[in-house]
């Protein structure tokens, strides 16, 4: 620890300040308490001004505006994205509403179509049934007529047979031919009765 406080090696230092520190440093070996040793005040102040000045310049001109811009950008990006998300959600909701409306329309249309088809089918069926019924009724009437005709014919035949049979029976019983007039009268009274 020979001499490292540096006051001694520059005796040509002209400032009065140096003279006092030299005397002070010379009195006690090892130098003054360094923070109170004014020998290095000037160099510290000069370099402090240089470094702090540079730091202030860098911070105020470069770093802080840049960080502010980054924070701003992020804020606007977040709010922009939120806006977009909100818009997308609204769009999706609108699309859903449109979709539901289409679906409801289609359902109503399908229902109407079904009803129409149903009615048409019912009408067709009705018409068919009516023609069929008419047809059947006509056939029935024809059959009735035929039956009546056949019956009438059969009845006419029956009268003839009855007349012949009655004449034969009467002839058999009485032994003489029957009076056709009386037989006819009797028969007609029977048929009527």
């Amino acid at each position: 620890m020979a001499d490292n406080h540096g006051a001694a090696p520059d005796p040509h230092a002209s400032a009065a300040m140096h003279a006092t520190t030299q005397a002070h440093g010379g009195a006690e070996h090892g130098g003054a308490f360094p923070p109170f040793d004014s020998t290095h005040y000037s160099s510290q102040l000069i370099w402090l001004v240089i470094t702090f000045g540079l730091l202030y310049w860098l911070m105020s001109k470069v770093a802080l505006p840049r960080v502010a811009r980054i924070l701003d950008d992020r804020q606007s990006k977040i709010s922009g994205d939120l806006e977009a998300a909100k818009k997308a959600q609204a769009d999706a909701e609108a699309a859903q509403a449109a979709h539901e409306k289409t679906l409801a329309d289609a359902r109503v249309k399908a229902q109407a179509l079904g009803q129409e088809a149903h009615a048409q089918a019912a009408a067709e069926m009705d018409a068919k049934r009516k023609t069929l019924e008419a047809d059947l009724a006509a056939k029935l009437a024809a059959a009735d007529a035929q039956i009546a005709a056949t019956k009438a014919k059969a009845m006419a035949n029956v009268e003839g047979i009855a007349r012949d049979t009655a004449a034969a029976i009467v002839q058999q019983i009485t032994g003489k031919p029957a009076d056709p007039q009386k037989i006819a009268t009797a028969l007609s009274s029977i048929v009527k009765g």
Binding site: D10, A15, T39, H40, S43, I46, W47, T51, L55
Partner: peptide
């Protein structure tokens, strides 16, 4: 005549 030496303190100011 003013001491403006680059010292270890100056070095650490530069590092800061």
């Amino acid at each position: 005549g003013i001491d403006a030496s680059y010292t270890n303190a100056s070095l650490f100011m530069t590092i800061i």
